[in-house]
Amino acid sequence: MLAFPQFSLRAIAVWRRNFLVWRKLALPSVLGNLADPMIYLFGLGYGLGGLLPAVGGVTYIQFLAAGTVCSSTMNAASFEALYSGFSRMHVQKTWDAILNAPVSLDDVVTGEWLWAAAKATLSGAAILVVISALGFVASPLALLALPVIFLTGLAFAGLGLIVTALATSYDFFMYYFTLLITPMVLLSGVFFPIEQLPPAVQAIAGALPLAHAVRLVRPLLMGQLPADMALHLLVLVATAMFSFWLALILTRRRLLS
């Protein structure tokens, strides 16, 4: 059960299965993923932003745009790994069907992980495109945000798959969103600088993967190289790898016992 993951190229077949389903509904899916964060971005960015002086050296909407890229990536990865993953694993029994073929459970979980991260990347990138077109991005350095977005997707896809492996029904996911995701958005510097928080709370924020993603993406969109880049990357990579590994162990325990 604790064995090292056995990767194989069959994971790609699992990824392609999900891609084919997505392709059928690609346009509504992209627009749906874009609409919600954009409403918040414009609503808060212009509404609230009108009352505020520059935040972190830029206009509030510019400040918020970078945070929105990260939080949307997180949301897209989480929804895919939780609701869609659980549907395929538990409700539709798609994974059971796949496991009867020469595909291992490790391949299935790997395929799902990479898929959720890819879909999240698309979500984050779509917002990046829109905010670039609106002039909220300072330089081509923003392109370096793309690998960070993918890494953020991997981290939250892995965390989501852990929850899916433990879930008994869709209701279970509400706890994850209310107890983890929502506080994480508020503490990670998406809406306001982390420095506004009391020092003790700032320390907690230092442990949140979303905070590290924001610390990387925001400077890149402003045309600067992030400070402590290696540390932030390391946290995201470690979260991605460890959460994936734990999700794999829990899923093996659930389905192969």
């Binding site: 190229l9 069959r10 077949a13 699992v14 392609r16 299965r17 084919l20 389903v21 059928k24 539709q92 029994k93 798609t94 059971d96 069907a97 796949i98 009867n100 073929a101 020469p102 595909v103």
Partner: peptide
């Protein structure tokens, strides 16, 4: 052939076969 139906509801008949073939490489 499993006891409970686990065909892919998101796909057509032909897509079900095509996608399953990919699992065999």
């Amino acid at each position: 052939v499993p006891q409970f139906d686990n065909l892919d509801p998101d796909f057509t008949v032909a897509e079900n076969l095509l996608v399953f073939g990919r699992y065999f490489g």
